[in-house]
Design a protein around this nucleic acid. Sequence first.
DNA 1: TCAAAAGTGTTTCCCATACACCCATGC
DNA 2: GCATGGGTGTATGGGAAACACTTTTGA
Lengths: 263, 263
Amino acid sequence: MKDSEYLRSGQISAEEKEFLENYDPDKYKKPSVTADVVTLTVDEQDQLCILLIKRGGYPYKGKWALPGGFMNTDEESVTQAARRELFEETGVQDVSLRQLYTFSQPGRDPRMHVVSVAYTALVPKGSLKVRAGDDAWEAEVFRISYDVDGMTFQSDSALVREEDLAFDHAKIIRMAIKRLRSRIKYEPDAFWLLKDKKEFAISELKVIYESILNEKLDLANFRKAFLRDYVDAGRVCSLNKKSNAKRPAMLYSLTEELNEEEI
Amino acid sequence: MKDSEYLRSGQISAEEKEFLENYDPDKYKKPSVTADVVTLTVDEQDQLCILLIKRGGYPYKGKWALPGGFMNTDEESVTQAARRELFEETGVQDVSLRQLYTFSQPGRDPRMHVVSVAYTALVPKGSLKVRAGDDAWEAEVFRISYDVDGMTFQSDSALVREEDLAFDHAKIIRMAIKRLRSRIKYEPDAFWLLKDKKEFAISELKVIYESILNEKLDLANFRKAFLRDYVDAGRVCSLNKKSNAKRPAMLYSLTEELNEEEI
DNA sequence: TCAAAAGTGTTTCCCATACACCCATGC
DNA sequence: GCATGGGTGTATGGGAAACACTTTTGA
């Protein structure tokens, strides 16, 4: 592995150097490693949405699935692979990308043993425009809703039930939403879904929370929590600008960079 | 991939069957995948401890590191690999094993690109006896303590500072402890560290919490929280047995199976 | 002047903390 | 008895939820 911190440190004996040069990386059989991305956003009607792609090839040809793909070994981390894939399929770059879980059960992919590192991507409201698909894939944004027996995904042209998804992707999506719901209680994840993190009203943020939690919140109490946790804590500053609604709302701006990964 | 649910479902066209039979699993270059385990326990002096192994071969020969190893592709999940490695090195089986994070930065292993799925294992008090090491490795249990610039690990025969550990293992350990500290506020993780989950006193559980959080707790309030969150909620029942201390304590027993992984 | 959304104030209630106090046992 | 840890009771303060009320704009 060229360029490793370890090698550059220079504290390596001749014996170790020889070991590394003669090491056979294919001593063990290896699984494939992919990044799968649960891409969430909120649409103009304040509905939580997810990006799915329709598989153009086998396996699960014609089924809807999470976007993702194989990592470029030796060149990138799985996180970089996830970011690359997401960019290739949507063009969005200003997203939160956070590791969710790694799935590695043998048999979850019929081709071979695939270890999938799943990520949750949070895309700002309005910025998830789907690119025109080629023959390999076709992408669409689906509104997420729930009924007695699970999630359904609805776009302008298709209705998909969770059991129709490819691979174990329904499980991954359930996990992502569950985790997001518990995370927004302590972490500023929801800010990523704002149209503009540098100029937003409290009510806009409240709508994001409501979409994620699927329940209505009390604005007065939401405001108090927001002021306490973010404004008073210095993580958000007020702009003294006014929007142009009924009564103009005070606008706020995130001061801190949102740290994506707590490594 | 023999035995896959997908293949057995039988809804596969001849065309797809042919695709799967001709698929070349080595189309892309693959990284290696390993499981690394942060094995935590509490010793008889109520100190939080970790299992480390001394590396017998290159790289980082002679350095202390997390136990772990390569997964057996096609035969097991990374979780099973972690469980297998932990068993081989310690003989313990009744442990909580929970996925922590996946590390995949190129260069983190000087041999080749290695994707490591890290796990946190919680071993009941007193049951972590180290096996005699062979020439490939040597294991020891270290007490974890903190000073101004980081963690130190102390066993009966060695003192290791976090920057002396192999690979990026110090980072992984920090993450594991941080996560455990926040998790025990909501989840019953600490029960795994009890000597006997089926017969324990409240004060024993309190000691576990104190070891993890590294701070003293008020027993009266700890008891109230325990009764509310576990006994009243039916997750723990009282045994009406008495231990043989000063004043005998009421003993409790976990009724539920602790679910290890929320997949 | 009215509707609608923004923003403030107040009341109530729950619950975590702190801490005083009683209980059961061994010595 | 008394030391030691087990267990109960209570007073207090902070904060979250519910909701009434005021303010600012557009129409």
